[in-house]
Design a binder for these strands. Structure first.
Lengths: 142, 142
DNA sequence: CCGCTTATTTTGAGTAAGTCAAGATAAGCA
DNA sequence: TGCTTATCTTGACTTACTCAAAATAAGCGG
């Protein structure tokens, strides 16, 4: 299903800016707002950063995009939604990889004591050193 | 073991600012830098926000504090370190609760495919609605 | 207890990542 | 094709943090 159809299915107008943002995030998963703006501007030079923030936020609200906030990083966006997958982040270079969820839907884990909260999501953030960084500077993880 | 001893054990000077910050974070876990500054200033009116950031960052680097970055929130700090516990966050009010780690040390989960990364930590973020928010505005989770 | 060294704090400036809102533009419908 | 209104651009702003020089204070040795 293409992006135009998905937008219309949610009662959203199909704009060049939205299609461009979705296309860039689809081909470059885990992109920041700045990175998306830079790439979209190759085709739409007049696109504003404000508009990128608007589009990313609006489409995340409608589950057309997923937002992921690793520590020490701007928010990152991806089009892979609905499968509750997790992420692995390299603590040296910031590289992000998708990790399939063993269960496939949220919440995939339940806390030992939820303190009365109704849990809806369990996000797992794996942190470590990627292969490239381990090769470049073999510290204790090498 | 008190904070002075822990600071000395790490070769760090024992300053009034550090002791005050540690004390506040200990009695108010999951506090932001702003919240810490506000409380410490009741005893040390001349404490600067810059100093709070310095102390929080330095003590986190030495594992005297733990930093936790929920989405849509400034970084939060706590003195509970070393047990790899997780967190549950209310998506409406931002309330944070500790959740014990079933394993007790990192990493407590391993990814199905680590993409060549050497995984060191697995942080689980549980998100949901706390009891108070559910009672106040019973949406779909009510 | 005092002086010296140097880690740390304060001060002032700045950056990065985002939000707010008014006016302009363009998507879509009749 | 014209009208409505969602969305974009523009300009301003806020929040959460960092940077670095000068001042201060912690701690050690004599």
């Amino acid at each position: 299903m293409d992006f135009s159809t998905r937008l219309r299915d949610h009662g959203l107008r199909v704009t060049r800016q939205r299609l461009a943002v979705l296309g860039v995030v689809d081909s470059h998963p885990h992109s920041s707002a700045d990175a998306v703006a830079e790439k979209v501007r190759r085709d739409l030079p007049e696109l504003s950063l404000q508009s990128v923030y608007n589009v990313l936020n609006d489409l995340t609200a409608f589950d057309l995009l997923r937002r992921f906030s690793p520590p020490h990083s701007p928010a990152l966006y991806e089009t892979r939604v609905g499968d509750n997958h997790h992420h692995a982040v390299c603590t040296r270079c910031g590289r992000v990889e998708d990790v399939d969820c063993a269960v496939g839907h949220a919440p995939c884990l339940t806390p030992s004591d939820s303190h009365g909260m109704t849990i809806q999501i369990a996000d797992v953030l794996y942190q470590g050193i990627c292969k490239d960084c381990a090769e470049r500077s073999p510290g204790p993880a090498g």
